[in-house]
């Protein structure tokens, strides 16, 4: 484990309590308006990220983690109805107009996508995409923006930066593309980076390189980072805190060391047991039974109850997110930190 994870501060949810809070998400909910009315996608999501801290938003596909990120960025779909409060650097941004929200993008928040091949423009040069951002957000001249773009590419470990600026995304390898994406996201000096599965599409050895780069950037620029992933093992390596989502709900929240090693919510435990771990010598895995209920078909009460081995009648009522052991969990029958 990294050194910064070991000391357990008084405020157990934050390993860096002295640092100011960059992002605070309070009771965020999101529904999509369609012909039949409102379809809830995300409910009651709350967490915060301090300067220099990485928080993981973990869950399987369809749990609402990516749309939560787009709601924070202010780029959620047009038919989204968003509730709750989002505060960035002490300023409530959830009540701002879409125009003012857009002004925060790039300058205060940077976004890194899973698939850099499709997240970068196919027919505009790398340089054009970077300088557009720099000129618009920082008011740089074309020459200044080009120089800054070259420096940024150099900083993220791209050789021959000047040539790459003239090139296009299809000419780069997967790892290089993601480096360009990172350079673009940090280009205007944001205080928060949201990374949506930034290494999922990459090979293991490249994944390690990109994670290292993200960690370097975080240290160097003291960035707050929201790291969206489905892989709990990456969480343990990379993030101080973890928020586990299931069917639009936060089901567990705590220090990532605790969430990964001693989860109290049966779903989080199930996620860990389902993955074949290195050298554990198991001949059978412990899957979570059934499948994730699709959006719009969530059960009443605890949404995990139909798949949970510990569920009983009480689980027909919705549990609150409460402290159990070392972490917060939304569960009537939490596991008490079984290692």
């Amino acid at each position: 484990m990294s050194a910064h994870l070991t000391p357990l501060p008084a405020d157990h949810l934050s390993p860096v309590p002295q640092a100011p809070t960059v992002l605070d998400v309070d009771n965020l909910s999101l529904s999509l308006r369609n012909a039949d009315g409102l379809l809830p996608i995300v409910t009651d999501v709350s967490f915060s990220i301090r300067q220099g801290e990485a928080v993981a938003l973990v869950g399987e596909s369809g749990c609402g983690k990516s749309i939560t990120a787009s709601a924070i960025m202010g780029i959620a779909p047009e038919n989204a109805v968003i509730g709750g409060t989002i505060t960035l650097n002490g300023k409530v941004i959830s009540s701002l107009s879409p125009r003012d929200r857009r002004r925060l993008c790039g300058r205060h928040m940077g976004f890194i996508f899973q698939e850099p091949m499709t997240a970068l423009h196919p027919t505009l040069s790398i340089g054009r995409q970077m300088t557009d951002t720099l000129r618009h957000n920082l008011g740089l001249s074309h020459a200044e923006a080009t120089n800054r773009a070259a420096e940024l590419l150099d900083r993220v470990g791209i050789p021959r930066a000047r040539d790459i600026l003239k090139g296009y995304v299809h000419e780069l390898s997967g790892g290089m593309r993601q480096r360009v994406m990172i350079a673009l996201a940090i280009s205007c000096g944001p205080s928060l980076i949201i990374a949506d599965e930034p290494t999922t599409a990459l090979d293991v050895t490249i994944q390690a390189q990109v994670l290292d780069l993200l960690e370097d950037m975080r240290r160097e620029f003291n960035l707050a980072m929201l790291f969206i992933t489905h892989d709990l093992e990456v969480v343990g390596d990379f993030c101080e805190k973890a928020v586990v989502m299931y069917a639009g709900d936060v089901v567990e929240r705590g220090l990532s060391a605790d969430v990964v090693n001693a989860p109290t919510h049966p779903y989080a435990r199930g996620l860990i047991d389902a993955v074949p771990a290195h050298d554990d010598g198991r001949t059978r895995l412990t899957p979570i039974l059934g499948t994730v209920p699709p959006v719009g078909q969530w059960p009443e009460g605890c949404r995990f109850a139909p798949r949970c081995t510990r569920a009983d009648a009480q689980c027909q009522t919705r549990p609150a997110l409460e402290r159990h052991g070392q972490t917060d969990a939304r569960c009537w029958h939490p596991l008490e930190g079984i290692q």
Binding site: M1, G174, G175, M176, Q207, A208, L211, A277, H278
Partner: peptide, 22 residues
């Protein structure tokens, strides 16, 4: 060796840094 060491879950300090790409 590098492939095994690159896999997540080893702690960031031990992540192998295999240079370059295939």
């Amino acid at each position: 060796q590098a492939l095994l060491a690159s896999a997540p879950g080893k702690g960031s300090g031990q992540r192998a840094r295999l240079k370059g790409e295939i």
